[in-house]
């Protein structure tokens, strides 16, 4: 797998994690748990943004692997 593909895969996993965390935050009736799920979701969102930028960079460098 190319670097771009790797980053892409990681991005999708992060998206999955984000969605799962959001579902946990909504479904849990324990406020502390909901809070921590939500906080982690925000952190994941930040990481996702950084990775997305890196992905654009990579695609510029290796346009043949644009996915």
């Amino acid at each position: 797998m190319t670097v771009a593909a790797n980053v892409n895969q990681c991005l999708s996993t992060l998206k999955g994690i984000e969605a799962q965390l959001s579902s946990f935050a909504i479904n849990s009736t324990v406020p502390e748990a909901s809070k921590i799920f939500h906080e982690t979701m925000m952190v994941i969102g930040e990481i996702k943004m950084d990775l997305e930028q890196r992905k654009i960079q990579l695609e510029k460098e290796e346009p043949q692997y644009k996915g």
């Binding site: 670097v3 790797n6 980053v7 990681c10 996993t13 992060l14 999955g16 994690i17 799962q20 965390l21 946990f24 990481i47 950084d50 890196r54 960079q57």
Partner: peptide
């Protein structure tokens, strides 16, 4: 979910080692 989080964390560390760009490594 915990396993997925751990995997992602390991992936990020791996990319940091693999990349040649200093800026990307830092990120």
């Amino acid at each position: 979910l915990l396993a997925m989080l751990n995997k992602c964390q390991a992936d990020l560390e791996l990319y940091a080692l693999e990349t040649v760009s200093d800026e990307a490594k830092q990120m």
